[in-house]
Each structure stands twice: as C-alpha cells, then as structure tokens.
Amino acid sequence: MNIFRFLGDLSHLASIFILIHKIQTTRSCRGISFKTQAVYVAVFVTRYLDLFTTFVSVYNTSMKIFFIASSCYILYLMKVRFRPTNDPSIDTFRVEYLVGPCAVLALIFNYGYSVTEVLWSLSIFLESVAILPQLFMLQRTGEAETITTHYLAALGAYRALYIPNWIYRYFSEGYVDPISVTAGLVQTGLYLDFFYVYFTKVLQGQKFELPA
C-alpha cells in the first residue's frame, strides 16, 4: 500500500457516499445513468470473486465487500426506492457495445486461463468504460447538478490516483500489471473532458453546462 493508492481508494469511497447522499437528499436519481451503475455491480462482483480464495488484509476485504454492497444498494435506490425519478429514455447508451468487446479482450489478455482470472480481466476492461453511459447522458442533457459532478470527479480521481501508485510500485517493488495500467490510462483518459469543465466551471462556482 502506498499513499497514492490509499488516496485513490478514499476517493472511490467518497464518490459512492456522495452519490448515495445525492440520491437520498434530493430523493431523486435524476441525472444518474442506471446502466453505468449496473455495469459497476458487474465489475465489482466479477473482480472480487477472490474474496473466496485470497485473503490480503482486513482493509482489502472490507473495501471489497463495501463496493459490492454499496453498488447493489444504489441499484435498489434507482430501481425500487426512487424508481419514478429514473428516466430510462435518456439513458440510451448501448451497454452491449461495451460488454462484448471487453469480453473478447478479457479472453485474449489475462493472467491465466481460469474462470476467476478471465473474469478479473473482464472487470478491469469493463470498469475502464463503465462511465461511458453516464458521460453520454451528460452530453445529451448538456448539464448536471453540482453534486453529480462532485461524484464524477471523485470517481475519476480514483483511477487517476492509481497511475502514480503503479509508477511507485514499479520503482519500489519492480511490480507491473500491464492490464490494469492500460485500462487505467484509458479510464482516466475518458474523464479528461469532464475534468476540464469541472475545474474551469464547477470549482469556480458555476453550473456544469456544456457548450451548446
């Protein structure tokens, strides 16, 4: 563990709390892509199958359980508790275009041909593009509630902070995980446009609005 990864994990944790807080205080999941959230459930469930086989630390195990549980809870909030506020008609990104290619990539690039390793690889690739339905929705509506942008910024910062973690691990342990690094770079890259608007508008106190 190093400071970058720890801050990344905290940022990830914060993003989930911000999202749940937004849904509960506004009593609405308006502006949140159900598809992105559903993909996250798939990401966490497929990645953390190692909960049954590998024990790393209490920290590691609790975080994994928290990410699975909280992502399922968010789906519950969206599909049951605040269902009327969820508008599928603007959440139109075709998720199958993400899952298909990621499944192919996972079959080609993995660290061993076992069910858990291929699913782990799939989860890494899927996570890197999971935000696309959400960003697509943002693009379509052209604006977002400020709290939603804080959620996205924290979520984007999580993988961005893993990049210095990987550099650090390379120099301190000689450890390289090419699958995670490649996917992590792609994932962070997808946020660059968003980060630009977030830093130049939202953090200056303006509303998040995309140019028409």
Partner: peptide, 10 residues
C-alpha cells in the same frame, strides 16, 4: 504464500 499483485489492488 505470496499474494499476486492484482489481488491487493481494488
């Protein structure tokens, strides 16, 4: 037993 790197990252 050594834990492979990708199991300790989240």
């Amino acid at each position: 037993e050594e834990v492979p790197g990708h199991h300790d990252e989240l």
